[in-house]
C-alpha cells in the first residue's frame, strides 16, 4: 500500500477540491438512501408518507439518534458502549423517582446526568487506565446499573413521568416533535465538536491510532474518557425523552438500544475498527433503522418478520460497506 509509486502521472492529476462531486458523494452519498426508502415506503403503503406518520416517525427517530451519536463517538475511539440501554432505563427510572410534577424536571435532569457522568467516567477509566476491553467494561457497567436499578425499584418501578417530560418525549409543535428539536440542537453541537473543533480532530487521531495520538502530545486517555462521558450523558437524555414518549416506566425502557445504536452506526459507516465515522452517518443509520421498522409495521407484516428483516439489513449494509472499503 505505502509501497505504491507516486508516478508523475499521479502528480499531474488535478488537485481535488473539497467540494468536488466525488467528495460530496463520499460524504453525503449515504443520505441518498433515505428518499429512496421513503419513496419505496410510499409506494408500498400510501399511509406511510402521510404527514401524521412521518411526524410519528420523527418521534421514534429522536431517542435512537441521540444515543447513536454518542455511540459513534465511542466507536471512533475504538470503543463500544453496551451500557447505553441500561443508562437509558436508569434515567427513565429516575424520571419517575420524584413526585411526578413539573417542579422536579430540573432535578431529574441533574440526577440523571450525574449518574451518567459517573458511569461514563467508570467506563472510560476501565478502558483507559485498566485497559479492559470496551466490550467487557461497558458490559460490566451495564449489569452494574441494572443491579442498582432493580434494587432501587425492587423489581417493580412505579411513579409518574412529569407532564413536561411527556411533552418533550411525545409532544409536537406544528407537527414537529419537540424531541426532534432537542435532537437537532444536540446534533449541530456534536457535529461542530467532532468535525470542526480541535477536540474532534484529536478524537479522530486517537481513534485512528492511540500511539500516534500520544506522540502528538495528546492525552489519549482523556479524549477516550470524554467520549464515554458524552455517550453516557446522551444516553441519559435519550432515556428521559424515551420515558416521556412511553409515558410509563418499567425497568427495561430502552432495551435493545445498545445494539440498535451500534447497528445504526455501522449502517451509517462508523468504523468498528475506529478512526472513521461522522455524526451525519449515525443520524442516517438511525433513520434507516426507524424507517424500515415503521414500513414493515405499516405493511401489516407480523412483528416477528420485522426482526428477520432488521437482521438481514444489518448484515447486508455492513457487507456493502465492506465491499466498498476493499
Amino acid at each position: 500500500m505505502s509501497d505504491r509509486l507516486t508516478t508523475p502521472a499521479e502528480l499531474d492529476q488535478p488537485i481535488a477540491p473539497a467540494w468536488s462531486t466525488r467528495a460530496l458523494l463520499d460524504r453525503f452519498g449515504m443520505l441518498l438512501i433515505l428518499p429512496l426508502l421513503l419513496a419505496a415506503g410510499g409506494i408500498v403503503s400510501p399511509a406511510f408518507i402521510s404527514a401524521d406518520n412521518l411526524s410519528n416517525l420523527l418521534l421514534q427517530f429522536a431517542p435512537l439518534a441521540i444515543v447513536a451519536m454518542g455511540q459513534a463517538l465511542v466507536m471512533i475511539v475504538r470503543g463500544l458502549d453496551l451500557s447505553v440501554a441500561s443508562m437509558m432505563a436508569t434515567a427513565a427510572v429516575i424520571a419517575t423517582g420524584f413526585s411526578g410534577s413539573d417542579r422536579d424536571v430540573a432535578t431529574i435532569f441533574a440526577v440523571a446526568l450525574a449518574v451518567a457522568v459517573m458511569i461514563g467516567l467508570l467506563n472510560g477509566f476501565l478502558v483507559t487506565k485498566r485497559q479492559v476491553s470496551p466490550f467487557l467494561a461497558t458490559l460490566a457497567t451495564m449489569i452494574l446499573l441494572q443491579g442498582f436499578r432493580f434494587a432501587y425499584t425492587q423489581g417493580a418501578p412505579s411513579g409518574n413521568v412529569p407532564p413536561l417530560l411527556r411533552v418533550f418525549g411525545a409532544g409536537k409543535f406544528h407537527g414537529i416533535p419537540y424531541n426532534v428539536l432537542v435532537l437537532v440542537a444536540l446534533a449541530i453541537i456534536l457535529a461542530i465538536v467532532l468535525h470542526r473543533s480541535t477536540f474532534g480532530r484529536r478524537i479522530f487521531i486517537v481513534g485512528g491510532n492511540p500511539v500516534t495520538g500520544r506522540l502528538f502530545g495528546i492525552q489519549s486517555d482523556l479524549i477516550i474518557i470524554a467520549c464515554y462521558l458524552i455517550s453516557a450523558c446522551l444516553a441519559a437524555v435519550g432515556g428521559l425523552i424515551l420515558s416521556g414518549y412511553v409515558g410509563l416506566v418499567d425497568n427495561w425502557v430502552g432495551q435493545g438500544y445498545e445494539l440498535d445504536s451500534i447497528v445504526a452506526c455501522v449502517v451509517g459507516q462508523v468504523s468498528l475498527q475506529g478512526g472513521r465515522g461522522s455524526i451525519l452517518g449515525a443520524l442516517t443509520g438511525a433513520a434507516i433503522i426507524v424507517i424500515i421498522a415503521n414500513e414493515v409495521l405499516l405493511l401489516g407484516v407480523p412483528i416477528q418478520v420485522q426482526l428477520i428483516i432488521k437482521g438481514a439489513v444489518i448484515v447486508i449494509a455492513a457487507a456493502l460497506y465492506a465491499r466498498k472499503d476493499n
Binding site: 487521531i205 500516534t212 502528538f216 478512526g275
Partner: peptide, 20 residues
C-alpha cells in the same frame, strides 16, 4: 505506519497534528 502517522487522515491533519 504504527506510530508516526495518523494513517486515516490527510496530509494537512498530519502536519498540523502536534500544533493544532
Amino acid at each position: 505506519k504504527s506510530q508516526g502517522l495518523a494513517m486515516l487522515l490527510d496530509i494537512a491533519a498530519n502536519i498540523s497534528g502536534p500544533a493544532l
